[in-house]
Design a protein around this nucleic acid. Sequence first.
DNA 1: CATGACGATAGTTTTTGCCTATCATCATCC
DNA 2: GGATGATGATAGGCAAAAACTATCGTCATG
Lengths: 298, 298
Amino acid sequence: MNLNLIKRFGHFLAIVEEGNFGRAAARLGMSQPPLTAHIQALEHALGVRLLERSHSGTRPTWEGEALLPAVRRLEEAARAVEALAREVKLGRRELITVGCITSAVFGTLPPIVRAFRAARPDTVVSVKEMDTTDAVEALRRGELDVAFARLERDRPPIRTLQITPDELIAALPDSHGLAASAVVDLAALEGQPMIVLPRSISPAYFDGLTAACRAAGFAPVAALEVNSAMAQLALVASGLGVALVSAGMARLAPPGVAFRQLASPVAAVGIAVAWNAERENDAIRAMLGIAQGIKTET
Amino acid sequence: MNLNLIKRFGHFLAIVEEGNFGRAAARLGMSQPPLTAHIQALEHALGVRLLERSHSGTRPTWEGEALLPAVRRLEEAARAVEALAREVKLGRRELITVGCITSAVFGTLPPIVRAFRAARPDTVVSVKEMDTTDAVEALRRGELDVAFARLERDRPPIRTLQITPDELIAALPDSHGLAASAVVDLAALEGQPMIVLPRSISPAYFDGLTAACRAAGFAPVAALEVNSAMAQLALVASGLGVALVSAGMARLAPPGVAFRQLASPVAAVGIAVAWNAERENDAIRAMLGIAQGIKTET
DNA sequence: CATGACGATAGTTTTTGCCTATCATCATCC
DNA sequence: GGATGATGATAGGCAAAAACTATCGTCATG
């Protein structure tokens, strides 16, 4: 899309919020006729009618309504940039921000955070749950100081230190026939509807899963794609399919889900602590030391 | 922020990715001097220097790096608007989209989805984990058909039907002194550092928590604010504080966390099924019927 | 039936964004 | 050490875009 159109979505939003072109124009600091032209141009460019005009005012069409959440997120994203720009002007605060993937949130993170707090009681620890891809990006850009994520190698300037090996296990609806077994042969999952996360969330997990199924002689049938590990397990619990998940997810013991080890263990990319080598500071080094110490003790 | 600047953030991003103004200009289909002017205008508008110019190229300043994640999200939001506009032109697909808050993902949702699938095997069910505020907004805009969230009343045109009552329980680090007791007096949590979610995620939960603490004679000490229920429990497991959570969260049994009932039960806003009355269709009515039937059976 | 409000059209003016030409500076190579 | 090329900045001009005002067409209201 031409970024020139983005401005017009702001106009569109103003009209929806004001309920008519005249008030929206006033709010935007312009007169009403050019606003009309902007919306006409936007509708033409999209090939969609966004607004229902009447003599008592204007409201969005079904298509306009459908776009509004995305347009509002766009506006929110713009506000976030602005807010961050103001904050950046004021300089960094004394904290360490830690990202963590869902499957490591209970296994890997708590002992490390406990030890770090004991070592540096004055440093504020901010924890954010996010997926591997987002974590790498956030490290690169300085939004995170450290992340616990599923990474198998450095991504300069991102350095990694392996903390925990991992393996894939099967998550089955507890009413599933295979749940009666203590272990499950991966090949037995051929043809089963599989609940998956998009590859973009964790490429290493996704590729590992696909490779394991291929090695077992079949391609996984992706019945449903969901936006989070919690939703994935919820659908398994709902009986909609099976999933291959990190062993760490079993710690949550959600009702309705039976976790079974695979007869032939399938290594998954383990949990690593990652950080941006160009941004090392004392707090980061302290956390790395603790993470390494915990690895050695295991 | 005025969405006018978005175009210039696109320019900024192109320069960072290309490493110099000339290549970025070529990529943007323009010449180099106006690109220089755009970035100068952007830096002036933000009051921040974004780029370090040198004769071997250009790279972002610390401030520019800090803004990049937010700028990328802005660009992603713009792409999402574009993609959605294309999809909107093609019309709706035959599916029902269901939003669900984390605490209901295992208790409330799986039996309903199982029954719905049995009743309507041809309708695709798409589940998205999200918080109450996002769910209401998504319903309003047609992004969700139905949501299971913490709501206590209608928000026309959003209708609600109470499904599950709920209560607050204490989540304590399992090393905590109070964890030895089977039940916990809420007043015993006075002065304890509390891990909280921002009010914006679920106003009903937040206000209920605050009111309960006030009724017990103290104001909660919000030691840390986190972005997800998982992160909240992870910090409890880390020993950083206690939390008051929905009884539904105890179904997850995360390690390191002890859930204790409160000596005087504190009702929390229960889980309701919500839908947009202006968008009812057969699939939605079917799911409402199932949800209501499950409520009656409980 | 008159009036006011709403959005659209038309013509004009102003502003913006682009162009090319050129400059200043620095790094590299001979 | 000087020539050369690359990088980003400045300056002036031009075309397109975006704004203005004036006005129109339509509909609801009093």
